Amino acid sequence: MNPEIVERPAFTVLGYRYQGKNEHQEISAMWEQFLPRMGEIRTTNPLESFGVCRMAPGLPPGEFEYIAGMEVEADHPVPEGMVKVTLPAARYAVFEHRGGLETLQDTFHKIAVEYLPNSGLTRVTPEVDIEVYDDRVFRGFSPESILYIYVAVR
């Protein structure tokens, strides 16, 4: 695991929000609902979509917030049933996840348990992880698919 460290300016994501523990694959179901509505969004980058995972204040223990969306200008109107969030400028460690959805949690585990404790980096609090689905390399979690995981660090 050898991530690239990048600085990313503040950006805004528009899409669907889920809050919970994802015990019944609610996030996958949410993406399936969101995909047909992507055409309603004037994105700044049509090749990328985002899964923003945040430990939002006020949520019960073990729960998190996940936003499936696309990057937009800050003044983009919010279609019914969607939300818009602006993420602050941050420094990110960028990791590649190759392969299927069934091994995605393994990649997150390796980042948290193996890489970060030995890297000299710490997560920004509250924690923010961003999944970047780049149409040029993401193939729907097939074995050759690549997904980028951005972990906000300092």
Rank of each mutant, 00 (worst) to 15 (best):
P88T: 07
P61V: 09
A90E: 15
I67E: 05
G15L: 06
G39P: 07
R54F: 03
F50Y: 12
A74C: 09
A74P: 07
M55C: 14
R98V: 10
G62R: 06
Y92G: 00
R54C: 09
P9F: 14
V94N: 09
V83Q: 06
N22H: 00
P60N: 05
P60K: 05
V94E: 06
E71R: 07
E96N: 11
E40F: 09
P46R: 13
F64I: 01
E48I: 10
F95N: 01
G69I: 00
R98N: 07
A10R: 07
E63M: 11
M38T: 10
P9D: 06
L101H: 11
H24I: 00
G15Q: 05
G58P: 00
V78D: 09
F64W: 02
P36A: 00
E40Y: 08
E102L: 06
L87F: 14
V78R: 02
L14A: 04
T103M: 09
G62T: 04
R54I: 10
G20D: 03
R8V: 03
M38C: 10
G100A: 06
Y16A: 12
L59H: 01
E40L: 10
G81H: 01
Q105M: 13
V13A: 09
G15Y: 06
M55D: 08
N45T: 11
G20P: 09
L35I: 13
M38H: 05
D106K: 02
C53R: 01
P46K: 14
A10V: 10
E73Y: 11
G20T: 02
D106W: 05
L104Q: 03
L59Q: 05
S28R: 00
G15P: 13
G99Y: 07
P79H: 01
Y92D: 06
G62M: 02
Y92K: 07
L101C: 08
F11E: 04
R8P: 01
E96V: 11
F11N: 02
